[in-house]
Simulated assay, not measured.
Amino acid sequence: MNQFVTLFVGGLFLGAIYSLVALGFVTVFKATHVINFAQGSVLLLGAYVIARAHESVGFALAVALGVLAAAVASVLIDAVLIRRIRRADLGTLAILTLGVDILLATELSRRIGTDVLNIGAPWGSDVTEVAGIRVATSRVLAGGVAAVLVAGFWLAFKFTDFGIAMRSAAEDGEVASLMGIRLNRVAATAWALAGALAAIGGLFLTSFPAAGVTGSVGLLALATIPAVVLGGFDSPGGAVLGGLIIGVVSVLTAGYQEELSFLGRGLGGVAPFAVMLLVLLVRPSGLFGTREVTRV
């Protein structure tokens, strides 16, 4: 029983990290109707900048630089590429972001090579224990940061001018434009937020118990795709819940790998996609997604 509780709690904290990255997907989709597959390489970029910069400028400033680099890269993807073919179909836009992801991830992987870069987190390999449950301190901090950021995002989305503009753009871009809402500014802000969230997610995904930053870190963002699909592409709340569900499923299936060995090895990596498919059979738009949302 203690093992189950420990795995479950660890899964929730991992899911909190997934929720941040998934929220970036949803933010871009709501503002621009683009499925941003470049989120993984942007996550890797943010983590890479932090790992390279922390020794010379300190951890806090390195994190700021990593978040800034990821946000700027995301905005450039929108301004230089997406904006030029904004009226293209969703499939074309998604493939374009996938191409960007491959190019950026390839270049970053070339720079990293076979090294494992230390993220330089001050909490190191510390472990927090409460009531007999041991969880990596990095995951506990990730849960706290995720809670604050998600709450802040919700408040901004509901009560600020940007939130109103993004909801209007998502509802009907042409009408929103006629009402004076600058769609390009809304899109740029959404892409910047998505990049920043990816960098923060990358920080915690590469902290202990992970080894550090490697060329394959960007692939970790693929685990958030089932979370986005599960919750619904246009639902911020769904992204958060989907991230938590996928985190718990991943950790539980990995933790009980021996008991589930009859289903094959590597079940922890496959289980999130299996859950996603099962949910889509019942609700094609996800748990909280709008049924009219177009899929690719």
Rank of each mutant, 00 (worst) to 15 (best):
M1I: 13
V5S: 05
T6F: 08
V9K: 04
L14V: 04
Y18Q: 15
L20Q: 03
G24W: 05
G24S: 06
V26G: 08
T32E: 12
F37I: 09
Q39R: 09
A47M: 07
V49C: 10
V49Y: 11
V49G: 03
I50G: 00
A51G: 06
A51E: 07
E55A: 14
S56Q: 15
L61N: 00
L68H: 01
A69H: 06
A70R: 02
A79H: 09
V80I: 10
R84Y: 08
I85R: 09
R86M: 05
L90E: 15
A94P: 00
G99Q: 15
I102A: 10
L104P: 06
E107D: 02
R111C: 05
I112C: 00
N118D: 13
G120D: 07
W123R: 03
W123H: 14
G124N: 14
T128L: 14
T128P: 02
E129S: 15
L141V: 14
L141N: 03
A142P: 05
G143W: 00
L155N: 09
I164K: 09
M166S: 12
M166Y: 10
R167Y: 09
L178N: 06
L178Q: 06
R185V: 11
R185I: 11
L193W: 05
L205W: 05
S207M: 12
S207I: 05
S216M: 07
L219A: 14
L220A: 02
L222H: 09
A223Q: 13
I225P: 06
G232F: 09
G232S: 09
D234S: 15
P236R: 03
L244W: 00
E259M: 08
R265V: 11
P272A: 09
P272V: 10
L277V: 15
V279T: 10
P284H: 08
G286C: 10
G289I: 01
T294V: 12
